[in-house]
């Protein structure tokens, strides 16, 4: 189901880069400020396309959101030492590629809590290093990599635009649906009047 509602029972369909779709609860999805800005009030007609991220990454991100649904509202970064066992397992079981994908997706979806924990984790990795050690750890990108990064960011901007357009389109459709009953009412009344007129003239 993809209708706007505040109930946590509501499920939304998410579409990944592979074209696969899967369900995410409304409560989990509402942790994403990007989603809130685009779909919360108007709903989504069909799957929500987050097609810049693969299914595994999106599932991982929403696994975190589903888990933290019942946690109190986010109130700024929490120290890694204060993370629960579940949180630590969640981060530890990711390999580096998945971790980077999760940060990118979480950053795009603007999930503050997850982005903040990921960034704190990276900062922790850099503490205690001198300049040379830091250069080794952060593996500075080459010119080609910088160019590729720029292309990816342009692609992401285009994807964000696509999502925004889809949201706008959905909003337009919703408006049309709201108008339908009035049109139907007018048509029904018109039909009734015609029938009445015809029966009257027959008499």
């Amino acid at each position: 189901m993809t209708s706007p509602a505040s109930s946590s029972e509501v499920k939304y369909l998410i579409e990944s880069s592979e074209g696969n779709t899967f369900d995410v609860s409304g409560a989990a999805l509402r942790q994403s400020n990007t989603f809130n800005a685009m779909f919360l009030n108007i709903g989504a007609d069909g799957p929500i396309p987050f097609t810049d991220y693969n299914e595994a990454t999106l599932k991982k991100v929403f696994e975190y959101c589903e888990h933290s649904v019942n946690e109190e509202n986010y109130s700024g970064p929490k120290h890694q030492d204060d993370l629960s066992k579940w949180d630590l397992n969640f981060f530890n079981e990711m390999d580096q590629k998945m971790f980077i994908d999760v940060i990118n997706a979480s950053n795009f979806l603007d999930i503050e809590r997850l982005t903040s924990y990921c960034c704190e984790r990276i900062a922790r990795m850099l503490r205690g290093k001198n300049t040379q050690e830091m250069i080794k750890v952060i593996t500075l990108p080459t010119a080609e990599e910088l160019e590729a990064k720029q292309k990816v960011e342009e692609k992401k901007a285009a994807a964000a635009k696509k999502v925004a357009e889809k949201a706008a389109e959905t909003a337009e459709k919703t408006e049309t649906l709201e108008e339908l009953p009035v049109q139907q009412l007018v048509q029904t009344t018109r039909n009734k009047l015609t029938r009445k007129y015809l029966s009257f003239s027959n008499e």
């Binding site: 990118n104 952060i138 593996t139 990599e145």
Partner: peptide, 8 residues
Amino acid sequence: TFPLFRLP
């Protein structure tokens, strides 16, 4: 290692 500058 962590490619920090490949993040947004």
